Amino acid sequence: MRRRHRFIRGHTARITRIAGVDLISEVIRGVRVGSANARLVRQTAPGGVRFAAFDGSGFHIVMTGTCWLIGHGDPVPLRPGDIVLAAAGAEHGLSETPCALPDLPLAEMGPRPPVTRSPAAFEYLCGAYRLEHSRTPQYLRALPDLIAVSPDYDRHPELRSLVDFLAADLSGDRPGSGATLRAVLDLVLVQVLRHWQEQDATSGWPEAAHPGIAAALREIHEHPQRRWTVGRLSEVAGLPRAAFSKLFTTAVGQPPMGYVTGWRLSRAAQLLQETTAPLASIAPKVGYSTEFALSAAFRREYGVSPGRFRSATPPTRRTVEAAPDAEL
């Protein structure tokens, strides 16, 4: 029986499940601040294509034909219905035959190529959130670089419906498709992460190594506005300050206050994008005493002012067909 999930691991997975925190929902909130992109790709050129690493998260869904997922490990065979998740935008490729990743031509970013009706070796849907001004959430960076899932569509018809809906939405100029794209990408990512959790509960999504670390993370997520210090967080965790700091850094991949700052600014970015609240009212909600303090921290993290971040409307790129040099 064919394995129903496979992955190419590029690093050691860290804590990505916290008691009392729905991390899949946090993942979606984290990537939603990026630009949503999707397209249907027909692989008409011989060989395959290589996708450069990027800041964000993306997936491929094989629609017709067979191909191989190429990473920095052994090639993985893919069949129609299989889904590949590049959780943190790792470099990878799709190829007609097994090969080395450097052997594949790099997908050139630029204007869309002309539509072609040439025979395709395989066809796949691509979806991605590109984070131009922020980092991929820690939870996604903690996962294996590439994950290949073979869903049981009979048990999960809702995923089949999502795939069919996305394919139909990308196959023509349908009114409202730009508005629906982000929501559909959200749902596909949720379903892929759920399937992978179901199929391999032991890989990449470990439980918190210490309940105190989980408690501290939960408090940070639920109450970013509090005046957190390492000392106060260690009290929440019920650990001595030095031991807490060491355990937290080992489990999460960054020191406690670095994590607090990143989470506060991520929440600020979400509020800027999803609400019309003024910066002066957002600042205290995410732990900053003034809008000026938040603005300075935000600019350091995202490279733009909060106002420019809010006013920038990410473009939605769509196409019916694309050659291998198409932009995603």
Rank of each mutant, 00 (worst) to 15 (best):
A38I: 04
S295A: 15
R14T: 05
Y139Q: 12
G262M: 00
R232D: 12
R4G: 01
L143V: 00
E235F: 03
A86P: 04
H210L: 09
S281Y: 04
K285S: 13
E321R: 14
P206V: 08
R310Y: 03
I8C: 00
I61C: 10
E222C: 11
K246W: 06
T180Q: 12
R4E: 06
P75R: 07
G30H: 02
G73S: 12
A52T: 12
S311R: 10
P119R: 06
R3L: 10
A142M: 02
E108T: 15
S295Y: 01
P240D: 08
A242W: 15
Q199A: 09
R32Q: 09
D145E: 13
L131I: 06
L23K: 10
T316Q: 10
P105H: 06
G307V: 08
R39I: 03
P206G: 01
T250C: 03
V260R: 07
S311E: 13
S203E: 12
F51D: 06
D55K: 15
H11R: 14
I18R: 02
Q191N: 14
I70Y: 13
R194Y: 01
D186I: 00
F122N: 04
A88V: 00
R135W: 09
A19P: 04
R117S: 13
E321V: 10
A87P: 02
R300E: 12
R155V: 03
S203Y: 06
G307Y: 02
S134G: 13
V149W: 12
E123D: 10
T290W: 01
T66I: 02
R182S: 13
P284H: 06
P105F: 04
I83G: 07
G65A: 01
F7H: 12
T250V: 15
A283K: 04
W228H: 10
P137F: 00
V188S: 01
P256N: 04
I24L: 09
A201N: 05
P102N: 12
P206S: 00
L265W: 02
L131S: 04
E198R: 15
L294P: 07
H133T: 05
G48D: 09
P113W: 00
G238Q: 10
I70L: 01
R308I: 07
P111E: 01
M109H: 14
A19I: 14
R267H: 11
L170R: 11
S305R: 01
T12H: 07
S161L: 03
L162Q: 07
A52V: 08
A326D: 12
L78H: 10
I15V: 11
L294F: 03
A322S: 14
M1E: 10
I24K: 04
G71E: 03
R9V: 05
G47F: 10
D200V: 11
E108L: 15
R155K: 11
C99E: 11
T180Y: 02
A13P: 12
L106T: 15
P80I: 02
D74H: 12
G303I: 05
W196M: 08
R17N: 09
V190Y: 00
T316N: 09
V41F: 03
P75W: 10
F309T: 01
S25T: 13
V188L: 14
T250W: 09
G81M: 09
R112F: 13
V41Y: 00
T12R: 08
G127N: 01
L247R: 15
A168I: 08
E219G: 06
D22Q: 05
G238C: 08
